[in-house]
């Protein structure tokens, strides 16, 4: 029901004051309910591309189409309220409680008090934070992992049709990151929200993605499932990227995941 279709059609974004393109003719589609990971080194244009979806970055060419409509034709404020947004720096509002942070978009949309209170508790429970213990805390009283759980709850509060996540777990310690990754997959499956997730961490991409889009210098190198990316890299760059690191572990991981997936369907 919240599963948006997103299509990038020959998207170009120029760096201001430079001839180089940050995003240089990118085309691919996200199907409804799919979790797609944009993978690549820093500076490859993956965050810029993500930020074109909610119009935080304007296009210099091409189109981004959300559910059949060019986002350039939509009101940016309304568009952003209908698309969840999670960033590495988290950006919880320091002067608001956890509950007020989670309630930001619902209150912008004019939900009633009781609707909001109910939704806040529901969301805190969903992201694994006991509502009575966390509702009235300040962001400064949270660990990094807890803060990003609140960040995720805030992003999905108003049941967005798509979710944009820009290296959301990059600043979180390893233990909390693994737990967050596991729960994100559960949440996205449960809500069936189309999700675009940016990371430079190959293992994170393999853990989360239905499909991975590998980017380099503003262009797409390959779009594939984790298994295909691992077994059939399209370019030497992709091969070097996915086979750097613990190859044996990764091989077991992608194959086991594929087995699980086929067993479940």
């Amino acid at each position: 029901m919240n599963a948006a279709q997103i299509a990038f059609e020959d998207v170009v974004v120029r760096y201001p004051g430079s001839g180089r393109n940050a995003v240089d003719g990118v085309s691919f589609e996200l199907h409804g309910g799919e979790l797609v990971v944009l993978l690549g080194p820093s500076g490859c244009g993956k965050s810029t591309l993500l930020r074109t979806v909610n119009r935080l970055v304007p296009l210099d060419g091409g189109r981004v189409v959300l559910d059949g409509r060019d986002v350039a034709e939509l009101d940016p404020v309304e568009l952003r309220r209908s698309v969840g947004y999670v960033i590495q720096a988290i950006g919880l509002f320091a002067h608001m409680s956890v509950a007020q942070n989670v309630a930001v978009v619902p209150s912008l949309l004019g939900w009633t008090r009781s609707q909001i209170a109910q939704r806040v508790d529901e969301l805190l429970a969903l992201v694994g934070l006991e509502p009575p213990a966390y509702r009235n805390r300040r962001p400064s009283q949270l660990s990094g992992g807890e803060a990003q759980r609140v960040g995720v709850a805030r992003a999905i509060a108003a049941r967005p049709r798509a979710l944009l996540m820009d290296e959301p777990f990059g600043a979180v310690d390893v233990l909390a990151r693994t737990a967050l990754q596991r729960e994100l997959v559960r949440i996205v499956r449960e809500l069936e929200t189309t999700t675009l997730f940016v990371t430079h961490d190959v293992d994170e991409a393999f853990r989360l993605a239905d499909r991975i889009v590998v980017m380099r210098d503003g262009r797409v190198e390959q779009v594939a499932t984790p298994l295909d990316l691992f077994d059939r890299p399209a370019t030497p760059y992709v091969r070097d990227l996915v086979h750097a690191g613990d190859d044996v572990y990764r091989s077991y991981f992608v194959h086991a995941r594929e087995l699980l997936r086929t067993a479940n369907t």
Binding site: V77, I87, A89, I90, G91, L92, F93, V104, V105, G151
Partner: peptide
């Protein structure tokens, strides 16, 4: 904090709302 302003924009606050809230 710039991250809070970025989050506010990305969540769909209008420029006056970002300023006031």
């Amino acid at each position: 904090d710039r991250a809070q302003v970025d989050a506010a924009r990305g969540l769909g606050m209008s420029p006056p709302q970002i300023l006031l809230r």
